[in-house]
Design a protein around this nucleic acid. Structure first.
Lengths: 145, 145
DNA sequence: GTAGGCCCTGACGTCGGTGTCAACGCCAGC
DNA sequence: GCTGGCGTTGACACCGACGTCAGGGCCTAC
């Protein structure tokens, strides 16, 4: 099948596939006129790439999984290199989540402090109460999104 | 004070300060020879920028805080625009954390599944046991990092 | 013949926050 | 006068995963 076809099947773009090929991640056979020619197996590899990408894996990080599939394994994640990549990503995610959580708590604290110092709550918008004119109204619960 | 001096005091680089000026974030007076000339107040503004940057704020997101300080407020975060920026950042952080958490759980699940399918645990490295040759060894507890 | 549709390669643009040149000016100390 | 050290501006480099454009080829249908 041709590049546009495969791209559509995998929900991506021809440009992306050319990029993958340029990285050696998804090389393509060529037909008589030089057009890229893909088959069902390429679709499998491509789907593997896309799934991992959705998890935030970089393209290089998908390589072990793709190689694993190409080596004939029914699943891309059973090879040692894939497992190692999973574990590294997991550690990375955990570290990142921790960091972000700390930042969030700090920002939240600063926000609350600033709110307390600032003008005495202009009455929660979604629950307007006549407020006494000064200081320390109960914090507005997060309004419904 | 001169640019190198201020940069050193704030733990950043002259290049960064020039960049901030190019954004109109931290404009500088000039001395008789065209060199940038900063004072203590600029140092306050710069510190505000850096703190927020450490929290992952983009430079544009620090602008309300800097303006607030420049307007004479003792703290950069008491102005309405600063509060709004805090709230937006908080929402962004929460959304991001949630997303990352979901991804992490998914990755963890996949890892566990792949581990279970793979070679029957080549004996937990930090607790080697002679294993019967097939399937479903108890999962290695996460090895100490 | 020509228009449309798909394909090709190659190269530059994007986003943010600098790092790192290049080429120059100005001042102090020797 | 020359060197070193600081400053100046302007411009390009980086990271990643493509988007987008330019310029051209091949095939099919009208």
């Amino acid at each position: 099948m041709r590049i546009g076809e495969l791209a559509a099947l995998a929900g991506t773009s021809p440009r992306a596939l050319r990029h993958y090929e340029s990285l050696g991640l998804l090389p393509a056979r060529r037909d008589h006129r030089g057009h890229r020619d893909y088959d069902e197996n390429d679709l499998r590899l491509l789907r593997q790439i896309r799934v991992l990408q959705d998890f935030g894996f970089g393209l290089e990080e998908t390589r072990p999984f793709v190689e694993c599939l190409r080596a004939g394994h029914p699943s891309g994640d059973v090879c040692p290199a894939s497992l190692a990549t999973y574990r590294a990503k997991l550690a990375e995610l955990n570290a990142f989540i921790d960091e972000l959580t700390q930042v969030r708590d700090e920002v939240r604290t600063r926000l609350q402090h600033a709110e307390a110092v600032t003008a005495p709550a202009p009455a929660c918008v979604f629950n307007p109460l006549p407020e006494p004119p000064h200081r320390k109204a109960p914090p507005c619960p997060t309004p419904p999104p």
